[in-house]
Simulated scan of single mutants.
Amino acid sequence: MTTLTRRGRRADTGKNADKRPDGEEDSSKDLGEEDSDSKDIRLTLMEEVLLLGLKDKEGYTSFWNDCISSGLRGGILIELAMRGRIHLEPPTIRKRRLLDRKVLLKSDTPTGDILLDETLKHIKATEPAETVQTWIELLTGETWNPFKLQYQLRNVRERVAKNLVEKGILTTEKQNFLLFDMTTHPVTNTTEKQRLVKKLQESVLDRWVNDPHRMDRRTLALLVLAHSSDVLENVFSTLADDKYEVAMSRSKDLLELDPEVEGGKAQAMEMIWAVLAAFNKS
């Protein structure tokens, strides 16, 4: 589980640094047309999370970050829900909590994204259905059941990075780390990353509405995923101290809301709150 930290743990950007309810979205809006800031490049939530976590020049995420892998899997579930492919089963007397309700298939129409479609096939083929928390564990490979290791999505970080390379945002290089060579993906389109960072900064500063249900859903989802992936600090690290404190305080207030309460409100997107609840419990 990640935690919101203060300026003392501010991200180092130098060379030696580390580090409407589900299904109501129109599935034709496959790349999140709520986000009108970027009209030329459409990124998935997974691509945005990885981009926020990458060191621009070095092209890799912090070696100390052990949260981003599961965060990317949570992003896959939210992305599929936003595209109208999956949703949570309706609440019942026995299953009211978000984490008790199963993920159900709504449409198996391919999205065109390999990772999303691979996950969609797993969800379609699984009987009985699984919960959000279980799916995050299965897709990450964190399961003791050898019969369910087949659900693990492998090389997710590298595959998402390759998508960003194809979209002209990253490039591919090789770096030597004494005992081994590692493929890295430095940022080449800094404008796109800066746009993404600015959008998140403004969402908790100039455009702050103090109500998650009035926020753009993709922005809300990205804030949740950035926190769950332990890369939210990267978003605010360039702010002046006074604005940094405001951004951290408002983010903390938002991310410490009760997912069960917020997910039960009218027009709430349950999958976002279910993913937050899963990471809060882990």
Rank of each mutant, 00 (worst) to 15 (best):
R94Q: 14
T109F: 08
G84A: 06
D113R: 05
D113G: 01
R101P: 05
P110S: 08
G112E: 10
A81G: 05
T109Y: 07
A81P: 02
T92H: 09
L98K: 03
I86F: 05
H87C: 09
R96V: 13
I86T: 04
R83H: 03
E79N: 02
L99G: 02
L115W: 07
D108I: 08
K106S: 06
M82F: 12
P91E: 15
G112S: 07
G112N: 06
L115M: 10
T111Y: 02
G84M: 03
D113N: 13
L105C: 05
T92V: 09
R97P: 00
A81W: 01
K106V: 09
L116I: 06
I93T: 15
D108S: 10
D100H: 12
R83S: 07
E79K: 02
A81S: 15
D100G: 00
R94I: 12
R101K: 07
E79Q: 14
K102V: 12
I114M: 08
V103I: 15
L115F: 06
L116G: 04
P90G: 08
T109W: 08
I78N: 02
L116T: 04
G84F: 00
I78R: 01
G112C: 05
G112V: 06
R96A: 11
L80R: 01
L115T: 11
L98G: 04
L80F: 05
T111A: 04
L98A: 07
T109Q: 13
T111V: 11
L99R: 09
M82G: 14
T109K: 15
I78Q: 02
E89A: 13
L105P: 00
T92M: 09
K95P: 01
L80A: 03
K106M: 13
V103Q: 00
T111G: 02
L104W: 05
V103K: 00
L104Q: 13
S107R: 12
E79S: 05
T111L: 08
L98V: 02
T92F: 11
K95N: 13
R85C: 02
R97I: 07
K95E: 15
I114V: 12
I78M: 11
D108F: 02
I86V: 14
L116N: 09
K106T: 12
P110M: 11
E89R: 01
V103F: 10
P90S: 15
L88T: 04
G84P: 00
K106A: 06
L104A: 13
A81H: 01
I86M: 03
K102S: 11
H87W: 14
L80C: 09
L115I: 15
